[in-house]
Each structure stands twice: as structure tokens, then as C-alpha cells.
Design a protein around this nucleic acid. Structure first.
Lengths: 123, 123
DNA sequence: CCCGTTCTCAACCAGGTGGTTGACAAGATG
DNA sequence: CATCTTGTCAACCACCTGGTTGAGAACGGG
């Protein structure tokens, strides 16, 4: 996704298992590109590309230290996602709560069972 | 992403603005495919495809009601994401906290300033 | 029973994604 | 200075994605 909006970029960045694993490891400690690439059995170039995606999403920042480029996790962007998710999760839960209320109040009202007697009178 | 793992599918599903908007609207009320498609200026088929992505991610379920196929939001899958996000966000915050502690305790310990007196004795 | 409505399936297309290899920039170090 | 280390850039490739159109399935209503 080369989409412009930040939320799409963050979600897309985390839709890849390798990238999620990188984030998980960066939550523990900063790391260089080589260190990050070591366990994955892909080229360093591929990892560099993944890092670019994470950087474009604002999840990661890269500084400079001699030839090395230490990668650092920027955790604030998580809040963007959390806010979005929580908003609609709560809204959906609210719906369920209201539905429960309606169902609970129903037996006091008209029961939805049909009346089998066409011209029926009480005996 | 045709990836097998559920987390990737959920993230990928929400990486599209149109799909996120559908989820937002479904949080308010269930809807049919036609109702969902109406505001988007794309074909109904495209919306049907989007719904399939959301369904494969477990975010949505489709039942049957005459020709109509009402779509219902399944909010539980959000928990999967929230759990993942919160885990690494907290881990990253913990790192900052520990770093702060180290920095705070530093002045009580050996100050990192060099001693300018080589064989220096007290006067 | 035929018709209209609602929706999915199939084929196709432009463009993006994750991977590769090869070349090269930036720096420490012999 | 020559060289090794670390990482990026560029070109290329197979595959997935989001969109289209056309055909057809499923079902209610006249």
C-alpha cells in the first residue's frame, strides 16, 4: 500500500510477519540492519526494504553511527491504531448491550408468538 | 496478503481505507452488500470482494435472508490486534522507564566527567 | 412461471509488494 | 592509500491486489 493516509500505512506495515517480528525485537532493544537481518534467511537488502516500510509508517527511526545505522522503535504510532480499534470495538459492544436490554424488556411486552385462532374467543 | 496467519490477515484487511470505513459503519448497524456499496462509487462486485477479505480475516460474517446477505461485524477479532499492540507498546515503554531510572541514578554514582588531576592530592 | 432484485464467480488488467542480484557510497582500519 | 564492513540504490521478476465487465445463481413477487 502506497496509500497516503497514516493509518493505512501503519496497518499495512504490520500486516507482514517478518516486519511484526522486527518490531517485537526492537521493543526489546535497538539494533542495526545486520543484526535485524541475521535470523531471517533473506538478504540484507530485503530487510532494508522492510525497514523503509516501517519507517514510512512512522514505526521506526534510523540514525547514523559510523557505517552502522541503528534502528529505533517509535512506539507512539501504536496509539493511532489503538485509538481506531478501541473506538469501533466499543461502539460494537455498545450495540450488543442495547440489544440485550431490548431482549430483556421484551417478555413484559407483546410476546411474538402467533395466535392460532382466526376468529377466536375466550372459552 | 494471502498469508496464513490470522494476525496478518486482520492487519492487511484494515490497511484499506474503504474497508476501514465499512467496519466503522458496521459498528453502528448491520447492512446488506448493496447498502454498504452505495456511498463508495465503485461496483457492487468490488465491495463484495472487500467483504470477502474482511470475512477471511474473521472481522465480519455474512448470513442469508432471501436474496439479501446481511453483513455483521465480529468485534472479538479486534482483541487479537489489541493484545499484540499493547504487548510491544508496553515493552517499549518499560524500556524508556528503565532508561530514565538509569539516568536518574547516574549522578549519585561515578560522574562520567574526567578527572583533570593525574596524580592529584588534596592540598 | 417469468421477471426483477441482489449478489457472487470468472476473466482480465494496471499497479504494488517482497524477493533476488549487482553496483556503489560511507567509514573504520590495516 | 588499499581494503573490508555495513548498508542503500537500481533493475528485474513472480505474485497478489483492487478495480473493471460479463455471466449467472438464488429467491421473492407480479
Amino acid at each position: 500500500m502506497a496509500a497516503a493516509d497514516p493509518l493505512s500505512r501503519v496497518f499495512a506495515a504490520l500486516a507482514d510477519p517478518t516486519r511484526r517480528d522486527m518490531v517485537a525485537r526492537l521493543a526489546v532493544a535497538d539494533a542495526t540492519v545486520g543484526e535485524l537481518a541475521e535470523p531471517y534467511d533473506v538478504s540484507v537488502q530485503a530487510v532494508s526494504k522492510h525497514l523503509r516500510v516501517l519507517e514510512d509508517a512512522g514505526l521506526v527511526s534510523r540514525s547514523r553511527e559510523a557505517q552502522r545505522r541503528p534502528v529505533h522503535l517509535e512506539a507512539e504510532v501504536f496509539d493511532l491504531m489503538t485509538a481506531w480499534i478501541e473506538r469501533y470495538r466499543r461502539q460494537a459492544e455498545e450495540r450488543y448491550r442495547r440489544l440485550d436490554d431490548v431482549l430483556a424488556s421484551l417478555p413484559d411486552d407483546v410476546p411474538p408468538t402467533q395466535e392460532p385462532l382466526p376468529g377466536g374467543g375466550a372459552p
